[in-house]
Design a protein around this nucleic acid. Structure first.
Length: 681
DNA sequence: GTGGATGAG
DNA sequence: CGCTCATCCAC
């Protein structure tokens, strides 16, 4: 207690108001309190928390298996360990040890392999010998995504709906902006700051908070700038931080009670400091970095530990200034930093090492893209092998799309892209996902296969060391389907599932001409069917079989069906199939020559194609047609915007929402235009 | 709009 | 390490 006049130059309050000042004054004003209430990034009272699950994957497995939290546990991925719980870390294990090393150092350790998708499986699963089957399986992180969702839901359910601001930062991290909630609690607890400012002047300083020593709970660790001011002289920022730490402690308790996960947390005035704080003491504890502790706390770090300085930029800074510590950087004038790093980056760095970070907690929980990938140990060497993986990628992505609410038309990805790596170089291709129709596994597969073909066509593709498929450009809302639905021939949507009808309606006429099988499938397959069917094989009751997309790994069955062709009227006879063009053996690696009755000549590209690859080859042309020109199913003109005009579409999606004065990643968005590298702006 | 790079977990 | 995810930039 004791001091009264703010010793801080930054505090305008005492100097500005000549009014009666017999009482102790806060460093903060009523205006500050107001900005605090709506989580303004510039509020000096702002309170941000970062919550980080401890060895998350390992905890997930521990919980799933019902193990005691004390048993040493690691999560295995092929021959490596990707997560190690704290009991196991006590044995000196870290992420780079091998399985055998781990078991030597810690014989008791349990190494649980991650879940995997296996070719032909309908779902990911846990398998004890997954690690032996790297050639036919790909890992699935679904179990962890699911747990992440539960955690997020728990947090959101616990925090007051009207005041929460939650950002999912990664699969095991969240940021909370607790400002609004803490503001509310502060007013409840301290009547003296409730009223309007004296003289109605927002620049009036607040009264000082009660001088009682703050009761930082046992698990809230406090780092101080100077040991002197230990407990006296708390101001409202300290009170705010204290309240926030209570909230975070409760959140953590809730997560533990409900889901049995422990986590570490950091609290401070901004995201950068909160994140450093959460890593400061692990596991299962929380660290508060008060305003008055910031300089000391931050100066103890190498700046390469700060977000965005962990890579090339950090290296550049180290090289330019010959140091890797925050404290050595502090004396460097901002102009100097800007001269070498560019205006924006220089200014950003100048601020960040002073503990200033005005980036917002973005309430976005939704993902913007999703990707499924695999590195090939022995490389894969042909189109067929790649297609098998595409099947798996599609199944993986599709199931995640379902989780995202794509079926319910809540959100839908706009583009699909495929990345391919061979040798040093990686190439990729992307294309739009046709709008206005249901997204199906078969449709995605067709597009993916098309993209792969494109990659294969222009350059050496084999051996391929890595393949990935992703969808992105998610859009909200239901646009699209209604118009089309009403145009369809009713009575054919038999299989519509308990989901919005419009989403699953079949495209009109059953009588398709050759080739329409693929297109129809693409545009209208009941999605549930796809969800539950196996990767390589869409199930085969009447209509589904009809609409089936022949996958490369199931040619014989398909062929048989085609051969007997007449069994279904809507199935065009083989002869009627559209034929094709294409690229010969880059797409079709197998030597087509010899034996004339096992090959045919594509009418579209004049290539000779082995019979077994004919269907696939034709699919390729269809997919190509689909994505290049305009193959539009019957429908009302208005409903098919996407086909004709690309340019006009631009406006549509983004609408007016994007790009406003969004702060750059560096904080204050506006700063002069950066020259050198606006890596983030 | 596409493809590559960077960064982080 | 292997696998995701996000953002930015040049084209």
């Amino acid at each position: 207690m004791s001091s009264q006049v703010p010793p801080f130059a930054s505090s305008p309050s005492s100097t500005l108001s000549p009014s009666t000042r017999r009482k102790r004054r806060s460093k903060f004003t009523y205006k500050h309190l107001s900005t605090f209430s709506f989580s303004s990034t510039s509020s000096p009272l702002r309170v941000i928390a970062h919550i980080d699950l401890d060895a998350f994957y390992a905890q997930c497995e521990g919980v799933r298996l019902g193990l005691e939290p004390t048993v040493p546990l690691a999560v295995q991925q092929w021959q490596g360990l990707i997560a190690i719980n704290y009991p196991a870390r006590a044995f000196g294990l870290n992420r780079h040890v091998t399985i055998t090393e781990a078991k030597e150092k810690c014989p008791e350790i349990i190494c649980q392999h991650v879940a995997t998708w296996k070719e032909g499986d309908t779902e990911w699963s846990y398998s004890d010998d997954a690690f032996k089957e790297i050639a036919i399986r790909k890992v699935s992180l679904d179990p962890y995504r699911l747990e992440c969702r539960k955690i997020l839901a728990t947090i959101k359910g616990f925090l007051p709906a009207d005041k929460q601001k939650v950002e999912k930062a990664s699969i095991d991290e969240v940021f909370l902006d607790l400002s609004a909630q803490v503001h509310g609690i502060m007013l409840e607890r301290y009547a003296e700051i409730r009223g309007p400012p004296p003289y109605d002047d927002p620049s009036e300083a607040l009264p000082r908070p009660p001088t009682t020593a703050l009761d930082w709970a046992a698990d809230a660790l406090v780092d101080l700038d100077d040991k002197q001011s230990e407990e006296d002289d708390p101001d409202w920022d300290d009170i705010a931080m204290l309240i926030a730490s209570e909230i975070v402690r409760d959140v953590r308790k809730e997560i533990f009670d409900k889901l049995h996960y422990t986590c570490s947390a950091g609290l401070s005035r901004n995201k950068m400091l909160a994140k450093l704080g959460s890593a400061h003491k692990k596991p299962n504890s929380q660290t508060v970095v008060r305003n008055r502790a910031v300089q000391q706390f931050l100066s103890s770090y190498k700046f390469t530990k700060i977000r965005n300085l962990g890579g090339k930029l950090g290296d550049e800074v180290v090289a330019a200034f010959n140091t890797d510590t925050v404290s050595d950087l502090l004396p460097i004038p901002i102009g100097e930093l800007q001269k070498t790093l560019g205006d924006d980056t220089g200014a950003w760095l100048y601020n960040i090492i002073r503990g200033e970070d005005s980036s917002e907690v973005n309430p976005r929980t939704q993902i913007k893209s999703m990707l499924s990938a695999k590195s090939f140990r022995p490389s894969i060497n042909d189109f067929d092998a790649a297609c098998k993986w595409l099947r798996i990628f599609v199944a993986d992505i599709y199931s995640r799309l379902v989780d995202e609410g794509v079926l319910e038309n809540k959100r839908r990805p706009k583009t699909i892209s495929l990345h391919h790596r061979q040798g040093g170089q990686t190439r990729s291709r992307a294309c739009p996902i046709p709008m206005g129709k249901a997204i199906t596994q078969d449709g995605l597969f067709l597009l993916a296969k098309n993209l792969l073909s494109q990659v294969v066509v222009d350059g050496r593709a084999w051996p391929c060391a890595n393949l990935s498929l992703s969808v992105g450009g998610f859009e909200d809302g239901v646009q699209g389907n209604m118009g089309i639905g009403s145009f369809l021939v009713r009575g054919e949507q038999a299989k519509s599932l308990p989901v919005p009808a419009a989403t699953h309606e079949q495209p009109a006429a059953k009588r398709r001409r050759v080739g329409e099988g693929s297109i129809a499938k693409f545009f209208g397959m009941p999605s549930e069917e796809s969800r539950s069917s196996s990767i390589g094989d869409i199930d085969d009751d009447g209509e589904a079989a009809l609409l089936r997309t022949d996958s490369t790994d199931d040619l014989s069955a398909t062929h048989a069906r085609n051969a007997t062709g007449g069994d279904n009227p809507s199935m065009p006879p083989p002869s009627a199939q559209p034929s094709r063009p294409t690229t010969p053996d880059r797409v079709q690696p197998k030597p087509p020559e010899e034996d004339s009755d096992s090959a045919y000549t594509c009418s579209r590209c004049s290539d000779r194609i082995p019979q077994e690859q004919r269907l696939e080859h034709e699919d390729y042309h269809f997919a190509l047609d689909l994505s290049t020109q305009t193959v539009t199913p019957p429908q009302p003109p208005a409903a098919q915007p996407e086909t004709t005009d690309n340019s006009s579409r631009l406006g549509g999606g983004r609408g007016g929402s994007r790009g406003r004065g969004r702060p750059t990643k560096f904080g204050e968005g506006e700063r002069g235009k950066g020259q050198k590298r606006l890596a983030f702006g």
